[in-house]
Design a protein around this nucleic acid. Structure first.
Length: 202
DNA sequence: AAGTAGCG
DNA sequence: ACCG
């Protein structure tokens, strides 16, 4: 296991998860989910996305992977990151500067997954990446700094938090599978992952 | 390029 | 078919 991987199982209580979800559901009404697609090939992701914060992560054929200050469909600025998430960032990372991006990945069905990749569209690799899981459980795979090499698998349940810091900040990782129907938190099923990141250097 | 396919 |  690469250094800098932190797993905090059951960090959020059921009530905290429900409160966070209620807030997010309201935000998504105007800060809509959209379907990103791959650079060059235009192939769609199996997950739907949106972001909160001063910068959001987007991808499409025309522009490639990037951060931008506005929603790609509505062209409006992203809504602010919920205070609860800022508190979690502060409490768990101890990182002085607040996250600029909260990327929301919605794994809507049993086919949704995220291939092995590294988060490398940011300028500040000293800051950790923090992820909150809500809803159905997922199989999370973590490798090393090269695409080839040994990996470990961790089942992430609703309310769990993962931090990729230190060496693990730049490690390959992905979601192999959603254990669809394993949680009742989301009434329509599926999994929501919230990822907090610094983008620019402090 | 965070995609898919294909292999053992 | 599933898994790594």
């Amino acid at each position: 296991m690469i250094a800098g991987f932190e797993y905090h199982p059951e960090y959020l209580t059921r009530e905290e998860q429900e409160n966070l979800l209620t807030e997010i559901r309201e935000m998504i009404k105007s800060n809509h989910l959209f379907q990103p697609s791959m650079p060059k090939t235009d192939k769609p992701f199996s997950v739907a996305m949106t972001s909160f914060g001063s910068l959001g992560w987007v991808s499409d054929k025309a522009g490639g992977y990037r951060y931008q200050s506005f929603h790609p469909v509505t062209k409006r600025p992203w809504l602010p990151i919920p205070d609860k998430l800022l508190s979690i960032w502060s409490d768990l990372t101890g990182y002085t500067e607040p996250p600029e991006c909260c990327l929301l990945n919605y794994y809507q069905n049993e086919k949704a997954k995220m291939g092995l990749h590294r988060d490398q569209d940011e300028q500040d690799f000293n800051a950790p990446v923090l992820s909150v899981s809500l809803g159905d459980s997922a199989l999370f795979r973590l490798g090393g700094l090269k695409r080839q090499g040994p990996t470990t698998s961790t089942k992430l349940n609703s309310g769990d938090i993962v931090i990729l810091g230190g060496e693990a900040r730049n490690a390959y990782h992905g979601i192999d599978r959603i254990l669809y129907g394993s949680s009742q938190l989301l009434k329509n099923g599926g999994r929501i992952n919230l990822t907090l990141r610094r983008v620019n250097k402090a």
